[in-house]
């Protein structure tokens, strides 16, 4: 399996929210978006260049451009790690775009590890 191939998981954002006990900050309308996989990165240009449609973006970046990139790349949702909270204008943008911003207290490594366990057999 190519690492970056879009995979059909037949899994929606809300199922992952439930399984990993994620907090939903905004963009509730997008909770039934289909998830194709996940991409972990804190570098915006890297996500612009390499993330694929439908992926969950795991990051500790709360930079104002995060939602712009999520929207351009048509990502399923953004997961902010380590208790990072989105800024007010990011929340607004997330609601407008219908792309959820989710949160966890776990680190990049641990939430990725758990999510990988969850989807590897799908």
């Amino acid at each position: 399996m190519n690492d970056n191939d879009p995979i059909v998981l037949a899994m929606q954002v809300k199922e992952i929210v439930q399984a990993l006990e994620l907090k939903v900050y905004s963009g509730e309308e997008g909770l039934d978006r289909e998830v194709s996989g996940a991409y972990v990165s804190d570098l915006l240009s890297d996500v612009m260049g390499h993330a694929d449609t439908g992926q969950l973006w795991i990051t500790l970046q709360t930079h104002k451009n995060v939602m712009a990139i999520a929207s351009l790349k048509d990502l399923a949702a953004v997961i902010l790690v380590a208790g990072h909270k989105p800024a007010e204008n990011t929340v607004e943008q997330s609601n407008e775009e219908g792309i959820p911003i989710l949160g966890t207290l776990l680190s990049n490594f641990e939430i990725s590890g758990r999510l990988y366990e969850l989807i590897k057999n799908r």
Binding site: V40, S41, G113, R114, Y116
Partner: peptide, 14 residues
Amino acid sequence: CRYSMFKTCGLLYG
């Protein structure tokens, strides 16, 4: 390592 950060974390965590 040639894997994405996601897969790298997943394999090591696993």
